[in-house]
Write a protein that binds this DNA or RNA. Sequence first.
RNA 1: CGGGGCGUGGCGCAGCGGUAGCGCGCUUGGUUUGGGACCAAGAGGUCGCCGGUUCGAUCCCGGCCGCCCCGACCA
Length: 589
Amino acid sequence: MVDGVFHHPVELGEKASMRISRLFGKTLRQDPAEAETASHRLMLKAGLMYQVAAGVYAYMPLAWRSLRKIEQIIREEMDAAGGQEVHLPALQPVELWQESGREAAFGQNLFHLKDRRERDMVLAPTHEEVITKMVAANVSSYRDLPLILYQIQTKFRDEPRPRAGLIRVREFTMKDAYSFDADEHGLALSYDRVAQAYRNIFQRCGLPTMAVEADSGAIGGKDSQEFILPAEAGEDTILHCPQCGYAANAERAAFVLPPVAQEKEAPLEQVATPGAKTIPQVAAYLSVPESKTLKAVFYVAQGQAVSSTARLVFVTLRGDLDVNEVKLNNLLHARDLRLATDQEVAQAGLVAGSASAVGLKGINVVADRSIQAGANFVVGANKEGYHLRNANYPRDFQADLVADIALAHEGHGCPKCGTALRSTRGIEVGHIFKLGTFFTERLGAAYLDAQGQQHPIIMGCYGIGVGRLLAGAIEQNHDDKGIVFPAPIAPYQVHLVSLNPEREDVGHVADDLYAALQKEGIEVLYDDREESAGVKFNDADLLGLPVRLLVSPRTLRENAAEVKGRREERGRTVPLSEVAQTVRGMLEP
RNA sequence: CGGGGCGUGGCGCAGCGGUAGCGCGCUUGGUUUGGGACCAAGAGGUCGCCGGUUCGAUCCCGGCCGCCCCGACCA
């Protein structure tokens, strides 16, 4: 489905062809040792980019062309959705971020610097603050709304661990769009418009993405969807239902609990479990399934809604499940949530390995709903070396909060239809988000309605990682020889190769073809070097342009050239007079 | 920040107390010519940085910096 429909050429409005003899950047024969991920390795090997620091890259001409094609597709679709492009500063006063409260929210990920007058500045990791201020100053009436503004710019985030080439970097190009509406209905319309634009963008780039429900994060908006490009190198885990189409990030995914047998509550009873501390050990020792145990996990939550001091939280859930920390964090409204240290656990008087909520006092207990699904659980006895059988909620223990705080896994039931969920790794290339009034209230962006009443403007925000999209495209489209560029975002359309250009008429014919294809408006990368056939073929495969066109003494004996698609095993011989037409046909089916 | 690995020419690597080497790439000349050719002659390195030990350190010791991978983290 990728091939075929999406080959619309993108005009960059400039000289659209290049001789490799003049091209800046060269390919490497050996794999760069630093790179393990396919896109990272291939981009370095093909001479697309140059690393300057961890998570900081320079883009060389070939990558830059590809990136600008992606940007151009984004521009066209955002404009079609009614967006207006703007350009915003990367350098911003820190006060702006204090005003929104996000200086603390971003924490160490925010790049700080001082100007010569010792004023604190930041390098913008995203642009909600500045654009909200700008809109506040320029919008005052409902007549000015709705509004969709967007920018395609460099953003800076001091990521704790840049990785995998362009997949996680500290300086990166992002398209961010922001919608401003008078009411929720308007926001819904803007959100849907942008969502459609996103589907168009990814389709035109030749990249099948899946839209999934996403966690809305600390700002606490309502709807949020991520656009995920399936790839093993991705950092996100997606759960999706093959039956009804439900799809969500694992951070967010709901699920139907795996069923357990019904049984009557039995009396609580203590058993010795020497040496058994983990759930698998306890379950094996007592010969019960893990789903008949309850596990205890200890967290320290900081900056909660209920109290600003750090607080130990006792989390319990069925033994066959794992804690979903995002769900837990959302439930607690914590600013910072982390596992408690062994020391903190001991100080609280808890017996790690034999802890349970039974008889627990003075500690906040948060339980997953799974404690109600099942009965007669094995739980810790809060005594070293002992567990309890037949613990039941609420007969034997209480919880301050009971909610869904468990991580969905492959095989769990779809929350909509019950079918077994499947799990996929993927790269988050886009994220759309109904923000509401978080920024407009804090930064004073309001409008007057027809009755003269003032209201905060309602916002949405919509991001696409441009470089990540390119890396993702390569992750998804490569083979053991190199990149297999989707045509719409390939740096050039045709890789013209002359073999033995100094012999017979090869050089002349190839030059003529080069000129003729340019005249046809086809973007050609022309390998006019005096290199051996193997070198040229391997470079063509490595770079992965959609069509390889070959002129050699052998083809010229038939007054022909060889045409080969990057995915095809063999080329076919085409008379010189028909080459342009054949190539065009391959690019625009 | 925790764990692991690595810093020697543009790339990939070896060397390990006595002032640096291989392959690829690069330059020049010649031969070759449909899947990373061959011969010959060359150019190119503060051995990440600082300190210590030593007559002498790329090598041993200490500190620091950088890069990669796993985890934490990633509105």
